[in-house]
Each structure stands twice: as structure tokens, then as C-alpha cells.
Computed example of a mutant assay.
Amino acid sequence: MKFADRMSLLGTENAFEVLAQVKKLEAEGRQIVSFAIGEPDFDTPENIKVKGQSAIDQNYTHYAPSAGIMELREAVANHVSKMNGITVGPENVVITPGAKPIIFHTILSLVNPGDEVIYPNPGFPIYESVVRFVGGKAVPVALREQRGFSLDPEELESKITEKTKLLIINSPQNPTGGIIAEQDLQKIAELAVKHDLWVLSDEIYSELIYEGEFKSISSFPGMKERTIILNGFSKTYAMTGWRIGYGVMCQPLAELMARLVTNSDSCVATFTQMAAVEALTGPQTAVQEMVQELKQRRDVIVNRINQIPGFSCLTPKGAFYVYANVTKACQMLGLPSSRELQQKLLLEGNVAVLPHTSFGSRNEGDSEEYVRFSFATSLENIHEGLDRIGRVMETVKSS
């Protein structure tokens, strides 16, 4: 059987491969503590579930406009206008089945074969995957621990060429939990205007911030027209299975994206969209409580990780990830990379984490090893999982 050549260019999200391995081990009777999947362990708030159920009862079960129902597009526009400090309307909004399609549709709409796209590394692996899939050149820009994993504008500028078409940023960031400092965002915005770049701003974790306030690059002068804002409901409202997200962009691009939705998905489930309206316009108490709980977990996991021999980490300012430096742990165990450490922790310690290779190749000149912990799990699991990792590291002393 022959497949299209382009399929060899399409990557994957390695977290799901680790999840499959975890499920296999659990089926064999092992109890795995997983820090691998970036999914809130909270339930969707009750008012949102009730709205979704009532929407089905009211027969919101038919086709909707490809760009989304007007009620939701208006709610998104109002929310983004308030949160980002810009003025947008429903004509700027496209609703998609999850936020990930906005990555795909943005790159399909803007990137020709040979165009260059700069993306954060380490970062969400789908950025690089889709750029390569459409024939673009994926150009990584490093996020370094010594800068708090904030993108360096000077390094970014060194990556820009006459072929650069699009810049992707993610703040708060997966996998590091880092936030791009406001002064860095301003410089990045100035570079985008100077070099006439589109910017895809992945803001999916924008409401999961533990210190300071969220700042969107779309709010800087000249940026609203050239920024595609990506956001959704999966993380903030624990709605991963509802599959609903959105993009906010200039109207001409929104019309093109809606056409892509027509050609791919037709539309998002209408009752899911009604539930999303309730998410944005209803009580936000559940979100506030979730953020407070995640902050408590963050403080615990950071403290515990930094007590494990060979492990160290910064305190993430947003999202629900800790990106731990395990260079010394690998050396202590005689392992060549974090990939082997990840396997050792899983197979010998019954703990699942993700190696830095799940988030891109090593940046040029870097030699550090990292693993990502998701703390979207209970405090009980955090303590148990880190106890198990501690016992794996204790074998170094006893050997």
C-alpha cells in the first residue's frame, strides 16, 4: 500500500505514546503514577454540564455556521477584548473542535512551501510537525532555563530572514511553565512589525497564572492585525473531551479559516458551543478554585523535586507543568539522556514523566537534560510519585 509522501513529514504528540505505554503497564497490573498528560484532573464545572445537557434537550443538535454560532462568537469577542485589552468582534472569531485546529488552519492559511516559521523550542510538538507537513521550514528559537524560559528577542532576531513568514509564541508555556516577560513581548512585537511577520499567539494557558497578570502580544501597537490568538476551553474549564476552542484574528483571515472548517469539520457540535457560552458568561468560581488548587500543587511539587538528588527546577509562573533539569540525575545513574531516565522511572519506579525529546530536538550548544512533570494531578499522587523517584535515586547511593 502506498501513502502520500507528505505523511512522512507529520510528527505526533509523544505524550499520547507514553500514555499508551502507561495503559499497557496498568493492564498488566502495575499501578503507575502519571505526570505525563497535560489534562486537568478536575471535572467540568456543573453549570457548564447542565447547559450542555439542556442544549441537547432544546435540540441544539443540528448544523451550525462553520465559524461558530453567533452567541459564542460574541461571547469570545467580549472575553478576548476584556482580557487582552483590544477591541474585536464576532467577525474576528472562528470556533474549532479544540484549539489545536487553529494551529493547523493558521499554518495552512499563511505558509507556502519554503516559507520559514519560527517556533519555541522546547515547545508543543505540533507546531514543528504541521510546518514541515505543509512544506515550510521550521526554525527553532531556544527557551533557556537561565532566562526563566522566556524567549530572548535578540536570539529571535538572529533567526529572522527574508523567508520568515510566521512566528509562534506560547505564554504561559508548555512544557516549561515559563511566561514571556512583558519587556520581551514588547521587543518581539517590534520585531514582528519591523519584519512584517504574522504571529500565532498560543494563549491556551492564559488564565492559569500564579504570579502577575497575563499580557498578550496582541495588545502592543500594530499587533492586533497581525496576531492570531489561539485559546480554548480544555484547560481553563476542564473541558478536554468537549473538543472546543477558538481563534481570534483579522476578518479576512477569519473568513479563510472558516472556509477551512467547512472543508474539514463542517462545524463544531452546537450543544458544545452552547456549553462554551455558559463557560465564558457564567460564574467563574470553579476556575478560581482550580487555579488556587494548582498553585498549591505547584508549590509542593517544586519543593519536593528540588529535594531529590540530581533533580532541580524553577518555579513555573503559569500552566501546570514543571520542567526539571535532570542532567545530574542522568550522570548519577549512568544514563545518556532524559529519554533513558524517563524509561527507568517508568519501568523501575512506576512513574510516568516526559523527556525533553517529546518537545523538540536539543537546541544548538545545549547539553542539559530535562523532563516534564504535569502537576494536574492530586497532592496524594504528587507525594507518592516523587517518593518513588526518590527511591530510584537512592539506588545510586546503595550501589
Rank of each mutant, 00 (worst) to 15 (best):
E17D: 13
Q21F: 05
L25W: 12
A27S: 15
G29C: 13
E39R: 15
P45W: 00
G52P: 05
A55Q: 04
I56S: 04
P65R: 03
G68I: 06
N78C: 02
M83G: 00
I86M: 02
T87V: 07
G89T: 12
G89K: 09
E91K: 05
P97Q: 01
A99F: 11
K100R: 11
I103L: 10
T106P: 01
L108A: 04
Y127H: 08
E128W: 01
A138P: 11
L143G: 03
G148F: 07
L151S: 10
I160W: 05
T161W: 14
T164N: 13
I169G: 03
Q173W: 11
I180H: 10
L185F: 07
D196W: 03
L200P: 06
I209Y: 12
E211S: 15
G212Q: 11
I217V: 11
S218G: 07
M223C: 14
I244H: 03
G245T: 08
E255K: 14
T262M: 12
E293N: 07
N303R: 12
N306I: 06
P316C: 07
N325G: 08
A329I: 07
C330W: 00
M332A: 08
G334T: 02
P336E: 00
S337C: 08
S337F: 02
S338D: 08
K344Y: 03
V351G: 02
D366I: 04
E369W: 00
R372M: 14
F375P: 06
T377G: 08
E394R: 15
V396D: 09
S399D: 13
